[in-house]
Computed example of a mutant assay.
Amino acid sequence: MLAVFNKSVAKSPVELQQSPQNGAVSALKDGFLATHFSSTHSASFVINLASSGFFAYSSSQKLLCQMVGWIFPKMGIKILFAVVDDMFCLFEGHIKNIAVLKQQYGLNKTANEVSIVIEAYRTLRDRGPYPAEQVVRGIAGRFAFVLFDATSQSTFIASDVDGSVPFFWGTDAEGHLVVSTNTEIVKQGCGKSSSPFPKGCFFTSSGGLRSYEHLNELKAVPRVDSSGEVCGMTFKVDEGTRKGKPAMPRVGSDANWSQHY
């Protein structure tokens, strides 16, 4: 799966924004990266988000997951896409506690993983009395997802605590954010600014990158290739810093989740 967001929608961390000489191109100009994705993935779909960016995924990736199922028989990897009330979401992976979350969010029996992610985000956006860290931490399984809320022009991106689903991100030549489960696609658009998306973390348009597994801050560590050149950053938990425990606002308080998530 692939998502590219205009820098006005999702401002990437400054650590991902490297010099123009890093081999990055413009991912959005003339539909470059969307066209490249379609040319390299059969049965692909591109969802245009107008000036905000686009989503892309391939149904043929499901076949790949089935083919490697004998190696990872319990992973149950799925690639799902859904749009609900102008909330667009791409999900790859599997949620283990899906029955519990369906009940928690009041969803029917036919709801799937992508429905749960959308509803979890809606809970945050509409002033649900839960810290974002707690909401994402409550999703058990192997997953990576990307959500775009067209109403608030905001994004919500996350990966599981073990980084079970390969997930990468980077910044293109114009500062737009690129995220994908295919490292080669990210490198095509971002050059050497491409990096693994940190496991156990989530990224929002207004809040930036945060860890939901630890209360510690994150620090960027340069990745160096075989020639000694910096090629992106790896974000790790900084054991020397610790954030304060997030407060849980009471229902009806002035806490406005839509301004933060």
Results as ranks from 00 to 15, higher is better:
254 D>S: 11
96 K>Y: 15
202 F>R: 00
140 A>D: 13
238 D>P: 13
95 I>G: 06
50 A>P: 11
248 M>F: 11
170 G>A: 10
16 L>P: 00
32 F>M: 11
261 Y>A: 07
41 H>N: 08
257 W>E: 02
72 F>I: 10
132 A>W: 06
179 V>T: 14
84 V>I: 12
246 P>K: 00
163 G>H: 00
157 I>V: 15
156 F>T: 06
120 A>L: 02
173 A>Y: 05
201 C>I: 03
257 W>D: 04
21 Q>G: 04
217 E>Q: 06
80 L>M: 14
11 K>C: 08
25 V>T: 00
166 P>Q: 08
6 N>F: 08
3 A>N: 12
191 G>Y: 07
187 K>R: 14
183 T>A: 15
194 S>C: 15
65 C>V: 08
240 G>P: 02
40 T>D: 02
203 F>H: 06
99 A>C: 13
101 L>P: 14
255 A>S: 03
140 A>F: 11
12 S>W: 09
107 L>E: 10
69 G>W: 07
170 G>S: 05
217 E>Y: 11
19 S>T: 08
137 R>D: 07
228 G>M: 00
75 M>I: 07
105 Y>Q: 08
64 L>H: 08
137 R>T: 04
174 E>K: 11
243 K>S: 15
47 I>Y: 12
232 G>W: 00
7 K>F: 03
227 S>C: 07
50 A>V: 06
81 F>E: 12
36 H>K: 05
21 Q>W: 05
82 A>T: 09
150 A>E: 15
178 V>F: 03
64 L>M: 08
238 D>I: 05
1 M>R: 01
9 V>M: 02
